[in-house]
């Protein structure tokens, strides 16, 4: 069975967004003067953790199968 590839945008959208948020979070706490910048930093850096946790803990309801026999 020929597998359908997801588009590059589907594949890299989240990783690029999470990497961008991470770098923003790392710098905003360093360059910002506390207060709001720290809060933004915590939010940005917590996002990859929350997104990961959401996917890891998702109940085993099947997502729309793109391909079941690709591997």
């Amino acid at each position: 069975m020929k597998a359908r590839h997801v588009s590059a945008r589907e594949q890299w959208g989240w990783p690029v967004a999470l990497a961008g948020l991470t770098l923003f979070g790392l710098l905003s706490a360093l360059l910002g003067e506390g207060g709001l910048w720290w809060a933004l930093s915590w939010t940005a850096l917590a996002t990859p953790l929350l997104v990961s946790a959401r996917h890891v803990m998702r109940p085993s309801q099947p997502m729309t199968r793109i391909d079941d026999n690709a591997l």
């Binding site: 590839h5 594949q11 959208g13 997502m63």
Partner: peptide, 16 residues
């Protein structure tokens, strides 16, 4: 990451 996930949605864990 690219070749290993090209058939998957982001974050998909194939639980079965």
């Amino acid at each position: 990451y690219a070749p290993f996930t090209r058939h998957l949605r982001f974050g998909e864990i194939r639980r079965s």
